[in-house]
Amino acid sequence: MAITVEPVIQPTSARGSFEPLDIAADRCKGCSLCVGICPKCVLALDESTVNALGYHAVQLTDAAVCTSCALCARICPDAVFTVYARPKGSLT
């Protein structure tokens, strides 16, 4: 088998693909504490589906607006959030 090396293409804010949050949706219990605390109102329960625990898990509705303030991570009882810093000047 050939060894293939492909260039790593960095996600850039210009392309709008920066993901400030990783959400472990399988652990979310849909308590919605994060939904109420989010200053940008970009967290919502995904009512179109339930996770294995039987809850509507939280989802980020607009990654471009999230400021990575991490309040969601600080209030979450189930530690579902991993938060990343938004690259400078990328906030729309």
Binding site: V8, I9, Q10, F18, E19, A24, S68, A70, A73, R74, A79, F81, T82, V83, Y84, A85
Partner: peptide
């Protein structure tokens, strides 16, 4: 691609 995002908070 390696995750090059700068971590602010993790479990």
């Amino acid at each position: 691609a390696p995750d090059t995002r700068r971590l602010i908070y993790e479990r």
